Amino acid sequence: MDSRMLQRTLEPEVMDAPDEADLYDAMDHDAVNQQFVRDLVAGGAVGPNVLDLGTGPAAIPILLCEAQPQCRVVGVDASPSMLHLARHNVINAGYELSIQLELTDAKVFEWNDDLFHTLISNSLIHHVANPETVVDSVTQWLQPGGRVFIRDLVRPDDEATIEHWVAKYAGNEPEYCQQLLRQSFHAALTLGEMRELVARSGADPQCVMMTSDRHWTWDAVLPIT
């Protein structure tokens, strides 16, 4: 490993304080969330049964149900404060029958009903100290032939790039929110690290690709066995 590269610095796995959840929800994630759903829909079949790991305030499930009304989403999050916001947002959007919210840690999530057709996750991996626990569990949640679509931030090589991205993408946010983004970049995986985890799980690492200047995406269909 190149000692000059930024090493991964973990951040708290759960954003559970109500004021932290409120600040996160107030940040402008609209463009990122909308791009996530556009790329998801454009890249292949979605649903109808969808699992969203680390659903947060449920912005992506709501956008997905708007774009794909046939979808039924189970959103999982370990933060009671986030799920409180999520329930409020789902009710306001009128999707109580389409979006089910579950308070549980994605690393130990168990599902006893039918397996899912699609698994999605946005910006969960960088919160997880041992992300292989999530990567290795994908097959237990998805049907054979199911699709995984996981996106997260990428950790760059240097502090200067982080500061450039914080200024570019959160320059109008309060300092606290800028610091959250800064910490997230430090906690993120590099493209190579994520590909290594996917390869160790038995999946094709080349299905993990850079999809923006600051995001990688793992988009793959499981084999039908």
Rank of each mutant, 00 (worst) to 15 (best):
Q178A: 01
F185N: 01
D113P: 00
M15G: 00
P61F: 03
I120A: 07
H126Y: 06
G56H: 03
R87W: 03
Q34F: 01
D158R: 08
I60S: 00
M27N: 06
A78K: 04
P205K: 07
M82I: 08
E96Y: 05
T55N: 01
P48H: 09
I125L: 15
G54V: 14
G202R: 09
D114S: 13
S121H: 12
D152C: 02
L222D: 05
S137C: 01
A45L: 07
D39H: 11
D25A: 13
V135Q: 10
D158G: 10
G75S: 09
C65W: 03
A170Y: 14
D19M: 10
S137P: 05
A31D: 05
A17E: 14
H186F: 11
V50Q: 11
E110G: 09
A160S: 14
G145D: 10
L53G: 03
E173S: 07
D113M: 10
D28K: 09
A106F: 04
D204P: 13
L40A: 09
G192D: 15
A86M: 08
C71T: 14
A78E: 04
R200K: 11
V198Q: 03
D28V: 05
E175T: 09
I99H: 05
E193R: 09
L189F: 09
V90I: 12
D19L: 13
N89M: 11
L40N: 11
Q35W: 08
A188E: 00
T133E: 15
G75W: 15
G192P: 02
G145N: 14
F116K: 07
S81L: 11
W111M: 08
P48S: 13
L222N: 07
T139E: 11
G202A: 10
A129M: 05
R72N: 14
N122T: 04
D52E: 15
L191H: 13
S98E: 12
L10D: 02
D52T: 08
S212R: 12
R87C: 04
I125D: 01
Y24C: 02
L153E: 02
I60N: 01
D30Q: 11
F109V: 10
D19K: 05
Q100S: 07
A78Y: 03
H215D: 14
A86F: 08
L191Y: 07
N122H: 14
P69V: 15
I162H: 03
N172I: 02
S79W: 04
A78I: 06
L222S: 10
P174D: 06
G56D: 09
M27W: 03
A188Y: 00
W111N: 13
G171W: 07
G94R: 07
W111H: 15
P144W: 12
D136A: 15
L101H: 07
A59K: 02
G47I: 05
Q206W: 06
L222K: 04
H88G: 08
M1I: 09
F185G: 00
V208A: 11
H117D: 15
